[in-house]
Amino acid sequence: MTTEIYDALTRLARRLRGPSARLLACKHLSGGASLETWAFEIGEKGASERMILRRRADISSAAVVLTLDLRTEALLLQAALAHAVPLPGVAHVCDESDGLGEAIILRFIEGEALGRKIVGDSRFNAIRPRLAGQCGRILSSIHCMAVPVGAVLPTERAREVLARYEALYRASDLQRPVLELAFQHLRRSAPSDGPAVLLHGDFRNGNFLVDASRGIVAVLDWELAHRGDAAEDLGWLCVNSWRFGHPERPVGGFGDYEMLLEAYAATGTEPPSLSRLRYWQAMGSLKWAVMCLGMYNSWASGKTRSLERPMIGRRISETEIDLLNLLEAGL
């Protein structure tokens, strides 16, 4: 597979930068659930550019999450750029002649993506108190975006999200009382449907690049974008699983609810209430529990073999204690 990628990127170098351009470096960064990411550099010595390849993996994962095709993701990135959302530019949308399958090429942006470093490394001490506010402003910008022409996004509100994840949970015959209680409670206390806005769908610490002096410089991984309740994005950002050992700072392990909601409101958009956010935070923990189960299942069924997949199943108890903390606090 790696040789095919090298060959394809070598051809792409010539297509994007002329006949003398070469592939100078190439590295597999990560294999996500359904997409793989490569960093590469093309051009000539002294006149080169670093880029990112995102392509659909050969093995598609268990259908736990609805992912957009990459052409739609490129449309969203271009639209979000016009709304002043910090983003990597789209350099190229691949077609059949590129031989990379479903793929897009993004311009490389320097920054830290590892959540644990963002919450803990001393080089981010100065910027850390400003990150929650940046998140609020970015999310309100995204939520004001119109769905770009040519993009089709699914719409899901609380009841639909619950039903989809509950069906996945039921299919496994797992017996976890805390998850049962969470499904029941979130069904009974579902908020009334507000307007459906454009959501990033996976906006959390770990999915944006942070620069030590400028803060968030790029929002990544748009493949779960959809339309729904604005509080869904805000709640997902506050799930304890992405606070990386700093539960005392609910927003991504770096900030407070107030900082997030005040910054969201500062752009003139009415933010959801804290209780609505906390409802969606609990939904986020419950979704993550089912996703962890899905990763275990993808290994148990023989679809994937990598060791970290089954072990992620042992994170379900993390989501359960988080759910209990929320339920005991009255959400």
């Binding site: 304890n240 606070r243 050992g245 700093h246 539960p247 005392e248 609910p250 906390r278 935070q281 609990a282 042992r314 994170r315 379900i316 108890s317 993390e318 359960e320 204690i321 988080d322 903390n325 929320l326 005991e328 606090a329 959400l331």
Partner: peptide, 17 residues
């Protein structure tokens, strides 16, 4: 808490959620 002590003993969480 019993299960968490086996699965992820270092996981930090807060009563306030």
């Amino acid at each position: 808490l019993m299960q968490l002590a086996i699965d992820q003993p270092r996981y930090r969480h807060s009563r306030s959620g």
